[in-house]
Amino acid sequence: MPILNPAAMPEQRGYIPTSEELEGFRAAQKLAYAAAEAVAAELKPGMTEKQAAALQETWLRDHGVNDWLHAPFAWFGDRTAFQGFKVAVQFLPTNRRLEENMPFILDNAPVLNGFTADIGYAGVLGENPILDRILDDLAPQRAMILELIRQGRAMNDVSKAVDKLILMQGFEPRHKAYPFEVLAHQVTRQAPRDKPRRTMPFKFGLDFLSTLGQVALVARKQGWSPLWNSGEGSNHAPVPGLWAVEPHLGFRGVGAKFEELLVITEDDAYWLDDDVPHVKRWKARGLWPVKDVPLLGEPA
């Protein structure tokens, strides 16, 4: 994708990747999940969030990642539900130690050959029935988001439908703790980097922020938002591109989410890859494909 120039207003809304580009994104996402799964298998009681985040970083660097959309995150225990999170720095990994039967979330966003991934992986060290329930109930969310986007519903309406389904499920929408209460954000290609990035100020890729900023400027003029939430800013038809979607459900100090890329094209939408850990888990439990996809919200 060419670097956007706000001065030269493109006709095209959003971004339509070529099939080669899609392969690049898919490879990056697969690698990101592989990292999360590998680190999840290594987690032991007593480990800290910082250690879990660092392990993801090391694993990904060892597998050819030189750049990041954001530094890897890890949340343990009630921090998986973002309990009491008020300011952004609270998302950063802490010295919270993992215990037996504690839920965790790993989140990493490597840029592989210029292709960005942004994934979330929720699990537990041992057993946690509440977490199991939440993970199960993410399945209808994933099915509903895709179906509503396919129907061409306004993006804020889809986000509201997610809110409504979470309310019916009896959980809390914890992605509302993120800045701008985002359900998803747009992801684009970045200039590939040959050498590893040494430091990562604020744990967030500056390139990403500047790209997002440029996208946002263009988007604003075109009347849409790269930050997808329930607000009026997202009150527009689905915009083509790659969206990192992350519905995050919380219940009594236990939180879980999935995060993966949704591809929206001019007239259709699909998940970049259906071969992801949470879908595999649902298939094994007979929960996927979802039989009665809830279709909430108001038809446009």
Binding site: P129, I130, R133, M168, Q169, G170, F251
Partner: peptide
């Protein structure tokens, strides 16, 4: 649904 979550 409420009962189910309460059981959890």
């Amino acid at each position: 649904r409420t009962a189910e979550l309460s059981r959890l």
